[in-house]
């Protein structure tokens, strides 16, 4: 489907089903209730703006020649930007971000490409390797299969959020001490997973650690040392 029809469809949808907007509004109010700072007056303005502009564009949509002209003049891109983004308020490593993102943006790509937090790694982009593991609201998840647009008001912790300056998190220290990595690329995912593994109560034996760390592939083959590191942190009993 090319952009024109894509756009077309969107606009027809809007015309026929204004209830979508009712829903959106309800949702926004809901988020407002949770966190009054989330939605600003500016946001509401831009929303009205968006409706106005899409209304204008709808008129064009019914006259194909104008539409073609519109796209040649790159209006399509401008309008697409309105059509294609949603507001997102998200906290990453304690820092709040108010963003406009495309609904299709994954949390992983948001972190790496927009927030410049490249510590979280892309190994497969399909939930098959664990390199992108982060904590969302305290739970380890795969950021490559997580749509950022569905993480409204979420609290995300990435590898960059563990150390306090030069003071490393106990798991980071243990990974260095036990040489739980070589190339270091799966390491942020392993560390995020390792911390969660202990917090979840799945680090009671080497066997259990191995099973609950199996969602994190290490091609350098540092598994033996990774289990050593997690075992030591678990036995150290520090609060993580």
């Amino acid at each position: 489907m090319n952009f024109i029809t894509f756009c077309d469809l969107r606009l027809l949808n809007l015309l026929e089903y204004p209830s979508d907007f009712a829903n959106l509004k309800i949702d926004r109010m809901a988020s407002k209730k949770n966190n009054p700072k989330e939605v600003t007056e500016n946001d509401s303005n831009s929303r009205r703006d968006f409706i106005k502009k899409s209304g204008l564009f709808t008129a064009l949509a019914f006259t194909p020649p104008s539409l073609v002209m519109a796209s040649e003049n790159k209006w399509d891109e401008k309008i697409a930007e309105y059509l294609e983004t949603v507001p997102l308020s998200i906290e990453v490593n304690g820092k709040k971000h108010n963003l406009n993102i495309e609904p299709r943006t994954t949390l992983l790509d948001l972190l790496r490409e927009q927030l410049q937090l490249t510590g979280t790694k892309k190994g497969c982009d399909h939930g098959q390797c664990g390199a992108c593991t982060v904590h969302v609201n305290g739970t380890r998840i795969l950021s490559c299969l997580t749509l950022a647009s569905m993480q409204q008001n979420a609290e995300v912790t990435t590898i960059e959020g563990l150390a306090k300056g030069k003071k490393l998190h106990p798991m980071q220290e243990a990974f260095i001490k036990h040489d739980g990595f070589q190339c270091g690329y799966c390491t942020p995912g392993q560390i995020m997973s390792g911390i969660a593994c202990i917090k979840e109560g799945h680090a009671n034996s080497r066997e259990e650690i191995r099973e609950y760390m199996s969602g994190n592939i290490c091609r350098c083959g540092a598994y033996h040392n990774i289990v050593d590191a997690i075992t030591e942190v678990k036995e150290g009993g520090k609060e993580l």
């Binding site: 089903y17 209830s19 829903n23 809901a30 949603v86 609904p103 749509l147 647009s149 569905m150």
Partner: peptide
């Protein structure tokens, strides 16, 4: 990935009502 609209449903009833009007809509959990 094609871009899409995302709507947050507030009850199972509105979720179903919403999707009923769409041809190319899907639930996501």
């Amino acid at each position: 990935m094609k871009n899409f609209q995302i709507i947050r449903a507030l009850s199972s009833r509105t979720a179903v009502t919403n999707i009923s009007k769409e041809n190319e809509a899907m639930f996501i959990a």
